[in-house]
C-alpha cells in the first residue's frame, strides 16, 4: 500500500506534522508527501491511502493552500467511491466555536463524495503544547491497526 500524505497549511505546522509522519513511515511503506496546493481531486486513486494533514484558519476556514483542492471537490463533485483516506486536523481549542472546523469540513466533503475514511478523525490541539508530529504519528499507528483489524476480519 502506498501512503500519500497531503498537507494543507497556513503557518507551516501541518507541513511539519506531515514531514514527521512521512519520516516515521518511510522505512515500512512507499510514502510520498505533497502540498495540497499542488493536488487535484483527479489525482486520487484507489490503490493508495491518502492521509490529509490540515489546519484551520480564521473563522473555521480551510487554510489558503487547501482551498483550491476543496473548491474543486465541491464544484466538480467527483465520485470518490473506492478512495481510502485518513484525516488529521490541527487546531486550537482556545477557539471553541471553530476548533478544527477546517479539516472537519474537508472530512465531510470527502465522505459525502463516497470516499472511505480509515480510522478516527485525528486531532491536535495547539493549546496543549504536545509535539504535533508525535501526536500525528501515534494517531496514525491506530489508523493502521484499525485497517489490519478490518482486513483480518474480511
Amino acid at each position: 500500500m502506498k501512503i500519500s500524505i497531503l498537507f494543507g497549511t497556513e503557518s507551516g505546522n501541518s507541513e511539519m506534522a506531515a514531514e514527521d509522519l512521512a519520516a516515521s513511515l518511510a522505512d515500512t511503506y512507499e510514502t510520498e508527501i505533497r502540498d495540497l496546493a499542488e493536488v487535484s481531486p483527479e489525482d486520487l486513486r484507489e490503490d493508495a491511502l491518502y492521509v490529509f494533514v490540515c489546519s484551520t484558519y480564521g473563522e473555521g476556514e480551510l487554510p489558503n493552500s487547501a482551498l483550491p483542492f476543496y473548491t474543486a471537490l465541491s464544484q466538480t463533485r467527483p465520485d470518490l467511491t473506492g478512495v481510502h483516506y485518513a484525516i488529521f486536523g490541527l487546531g486550537d481549542s482556545f477557539y471553541t466555536e471553530t476548533f478544527g472546523h477546517g479539516s472537519l469540513k474537508l472530512d465531510a466533503q470527502l465522505k459525502d463524495l463516497g470516499a472511505h475514511r480509515a480510522g478516527d478523525f485525528g486531532r491536535h490541539d495547539a493549546s496543549t503544547w504536545e509535539p504535533v508530529g508525535e501526536v500525528a504519528v501515534a494517531w496514525f499507528e491506530d489508523v493502521l491497526s484499525s485497517l489490519q483489524v478490518n482486513s483480518n476480519a474480511a
Binding site: S11, G12, N13, M16, D92, S93, F94, D125, A126, S127, W129, P131, V132
Partner: peptide, 14 residues
C-alpha cells in the same frame, strides 16, 4: 494567555 499561538515556537525551534 494565547499559548496556542505561542506554540508555533516548536516549529521554529527545529
Amino acid at each position: 494567555d494565547h499559548q496556542g499561538t505561542k506554540s508555533i515556537q516548536a516549529q521554529f525551534a527545529r
